[in-house]
Simulated scan of single mutants.
Amino acid sequence: MIILAFGMLTPGEKIPEVALFDFQDKAIHLISFFLLAYLWSGVGIKKEQINYRNPRIWQNFILFGIFCGIGFELAQQFIPNRSFEIMDMIANAIGASLGLLAYLKWPFIKYILE
């Protein structure tokens, strides 16, 4: 989350322009928040407690996936050469949602990484 905050809240002139394909910015938002939600959705949850009905998973998802996406995007309007974009916020939410779904489907990958 610290790396993501650093990347999203760095002034625009400090970031080099690299355009590989259309919608690159949205893809970066989607992938970043996918990873964030996947890694943070299960914080404080034991393997046997993983299921979609566990309210702790949803709390983690809302806090680290949705609120971080909204907060980082809102904060960008106060950073030089950065701007608030509703489509970035939507890409953040879609990425976080996909990360949660991936966590619920394949939580074992996270435990292998630990």
Score class of each variant (00 low, 15 high):
F61M: 03
S32W: 01
F61H: 00
K14D: 11
Y103M: 00
L35C: 14
D25M: 01
M89K: 14
F84N: 11
F33M: 10
S32V: 02
A5I: 03
Y103D: 00
I90D: 02
A93Q: 12
Q76F: 07
K110C: 09
H29P: 00
G12A: 04
N51Q: 06
W106Q: 03
L39Y: 11
Q77C: 10
R56P: 00
I62R: 00
A75H: 10
I31V: 15
F78L: 08
L4D: 01
L98N: 04
G71Y: 02
Q24L: 01
G65D: 03
P11Q: 10
L113A: 14
A19F: 02
Y103W: 06
I90F: 11
A19N: 09
A102F: 13
C68A: 14
I2L: 15
F34K: 10
Q76S: 01
I31H: 10
L113C: 08
I28H: 06
F108C: 04
I2C: 12
F108A: 09
K105D: 05
S83G: 13
Q76I: 01
L39Q: 09
I62E: 13
E48T: 07
L74T: 06
L100C: 02
M89W: 06
L63R: 13
V18Q: 13
M87Q: 11
E13A: 09
I94L: 15
F23S: 11
L30Q: 08
E17A: 10
Q24W: 01
I109C: 12
M1D: 14
A102I: 04
P80F: 04
E114M: 08
K47S: 15
N51F: 05
G12N: 07
I86D: 04
F67D: 04
I62Y: 02
N51K: 12
Y111C: 03
F34M: 10
I86S: 15
A93M: 14
S32P: 00
Q59L: 13
K110H: 12
I50P: 15
M8H: 11
Q76E: 14
G71W: 02
I70D: 14
L4I: 08
M8G: 12
M1T: 07
I90P: 05
I109Y: 05
E17Y: 05
Y52T: 07
Q77H: 14
I45G: 12
Y103Q: 01
D88M: 08
I109R: 03
R82S: 03
F34W: 14
I3F: 12
R56K: 12
A27S: 09
G69I: 01
A93K: 05
G12F: 09
D22G: 06
G99K: 02
S97E: 09
L9F: 06
N92F: 04
G12R: 13
F6P: 01
A5C: 08
L101N: 13
G42Y: 08
L4F: 05
F34S: 05
G7C: 13
E114H: 10
L104P: 04
P16R: 09
